[in-house]
């Protein structure tokens, strides 16, 4: 294992992580809900009466973040996403993530952040499993196939 010190951002990542924790904390204590993105988005597709507005408000807040970010932090802190995968890979990945997170009842936020925080065994098993398969997936793409063709 070789650590990539050039891209390592301990300060920003820890601070960002604390903000993820604070938002999850407010959501469970004030609104009484688990902050899990796949659940919030996926639940919207069921179109249940009285169960739509809160999801849309949350997603609106989230999608406003890139615009608000510009007013809070120096311009140089804005990270433009770099997406290496080609369209076919992106679409296969999207379907796997969409189906998998709903079938497995959560993603990095619901299981990873909230689940580990409430010491749920189910979430620990889920987090270990998706991280393990994330490592394998990247190993296959980057080291067995030497990148996306």
């Amino acid at each position: 294992m070789i650590i990539d010190f050039q891209n390592f951002t301990p300060f920003e990542s820890l601070l960002g992580g604390i903000l993820l924790g604070i938002s999850s904390a407010i959501f469970i204590l004030v609104n009484g809900r688990i902050l899990g993105i796949s659940g919030i988005l996926g639940g919207l597709l069921r179109l249940r009466k009285g169960d739509i507005t809160w999801r849309i408000m949350f997603l609106l807040g989230m999608t406003s973040a890139p615009f608000v970010f510009r007013f809070l932090f120096p311009i140089s802190w804005i990270v433009e996403p770099k997406i290496e995968a080609n369209y076919l890979t992106i679409m296969i990945a999207g379907i796997l993530v969409g189906f998998g997170t709903r079938y497995g009842s959560g993603c990095t936020s619901g299981h990873g952040v909230c689940g580990l925080s409430r010491l749920s065994l189910r979430s620990m098993v889920s987090t270990i499993t998706f991280m393990l398969f994330g490592f394998i997936s990247v190993y296959v793409v980057r080291h067995l196939f030497q990148g996306y063709s």
């Binding site: 890979t89 990945a93 709903r102 497995g104 299981h111 189910r122 098993v125």
Partner: peptide, 24 residues
């Protein structure tokens, strides 16, 4: 729980996206 996490993990590694960052 397990099969869902496996599918999710494979997709996450393929694109580098989980649901939150993809929406951002």
């Amino acid at each position: 729980l397990i099969i869902g996490a496996i599918f999710f993990g494979i997709g996450w590694g393929l694109a580098g996206f989980c649901p939150g960052p993809a929406i951002i």
